[in-house]
Design a protein around this nucleic acid. Sequence first.
DNA 1: GTAGGATGTTGACTTAAGTCACGTCTGCTC
DNA 2: GAGCAGACGTGACTTAAGTCAACATCCTAC
Lengths: 255, 255
Amino acid sequence: MSLPRVAAVNEVRDSCRNCRLRELCLPDSLSLAEVSKLEEIVQRRKPIARGDYLFQSGHPFNAIYAVRTGSIKTSSLLANGDEHITGFHFPGEVIGLEAITSDRHACAAIAMETSSVCEIPFHALEVLGEKAPKLQQQLVRIMSRELVTEQGTAQLLTRRSAEQRLAAILLNFSERFVRRGLSGNRFRLPMSRLDLGNYLGLVPETMSRTFRRLEEQGLLDIAGKEINIADKSALTELAYGTAPEATPNACRRSG
Amino acid sequence: MSLPRVAAVNEVRDSCRNCRLRELCLPDSLSLAEVSKLEEIVQRRKPIARGDYLFQSGHPFNAIYAVRTGSIKTSSLLANGDEHITGFHFPGEVIGLEAITSDRHACAAIAMETSSVCEIPFHALEVLGEKAPKLQQQLVRIMSRELVTEQGTAQLLTRRSAEQRLAAILLNFSERFVRRGLSGNRFRLPMSRLDLGNYLGLVPETMSRTFRRLEEQGLLDIAGKEINIADKSALTELAYGTAPEATPNACRRSG
DNA sequence: GTAGGATGTTGACTTAAGTCACGTCTGCTC
DNA sequence: GAGCAGACGTGACTTAAGTCAACATCCTAC
């Protein structure tokens, strides 16, 4: 099933210090010394093929992961057997933090395309944190950011129409692509409509119709998974009500 | 507007060391020395009257809070002017963590009844954490727990009927009351139906009808805000599908 | 103890999204 | 490059929850 490709040599050699994603997963400036201590424990794993698990729900928790390339979805199994996708994760984002509290992964992480990650063994990180408190503090900040993201997700799902949910998630992806220096207007969705619908609480038929309606309104151009945001301010207006340039996510920035 | 009552003397004298809630906000066993260091920075605030703000959205972030008595709701203002309630918080639970990342509160915290909190100045906590890494590690664990809770909330709101949402939140409250040593079957909801509906993404009319339907089905007895869970296993079955004693929240415990 | 607002309830009607059924497209595998 | 499975799209119909409007009840302040 898995057919890991060989990573480009320079990709493997990349260190945290000169990682292009550094400002995403380590936004505050740690000292060089602190970053290189972190580097010593970080492991670069072989790329994961599309559909493969990075970890599974219920498995023991050993490490957190920073996405380097590709994209990862996390999903959890509901008691009735349904799967629920809890998030999509792009380069520079950290996954596995929800497992710290119980020592077991609460969700499964699955690659949506060939992806690579940095593995950060958690025990080693804690030991390191005892000597380098800034590192531990940085972890707390990253977790706080995740908390804000999750609250944003909950809001996305509360009393919003299908059009609003889709508009909001596309703008959210757009923002995250911009943060990585990519185009915020033209991008490729790495997930199926089924997965996106699952995340948004919408059935695939509704997803299809909603995409079409947004296209008919001239807000998007759609060609399969390629999305072009044709009218960003109208899309924002649709997603968040009355305030086009107000906070894209009421809980995401407020100051 | 606010009319703070004088706290009972022994309530004020309570320290973290012998706090009845200790195992809730500090579940791992820190050493006595560590707990007493924490005690030195914790401040006990005057009780907050019903409807008063503990902090407001957009205000500078200075401290996190542990609820001691009463109950607190957190809410954020959406761009379109609507208010969205992001959570309900009971004694032993910690609030304000989402503000660490941005140095501003992303939500407002409002007392639902006369409540008291421990205020933990965050800067002092970080400084202390540099000397007592266990404390910092405990904070990370608490935040991880919050992350799991938030993911549970998102699941609650995704593709579940009004009956399932209400059943699930009542069971969730029940669990949290049990953790505090209270009855899990008979309790008083501190929030209005309007607030509960806001949190669940349901309109007050639907809340009212849904409560009635659950009562008609013999799952609950309702007298205003007093709730009696009459048939817990049927309620669980309703909330989570097929598995009465399986995981009450797919993402909350999985091992 | 009463007035008045907030909170909660009920019924009739509307509507957005789900369901079912079917057809088409796309991208793998052999 | 044929064949197949999964993903995607469309239409007809159903239904759960929202909306609107009216009324009841509970608090709180005076």
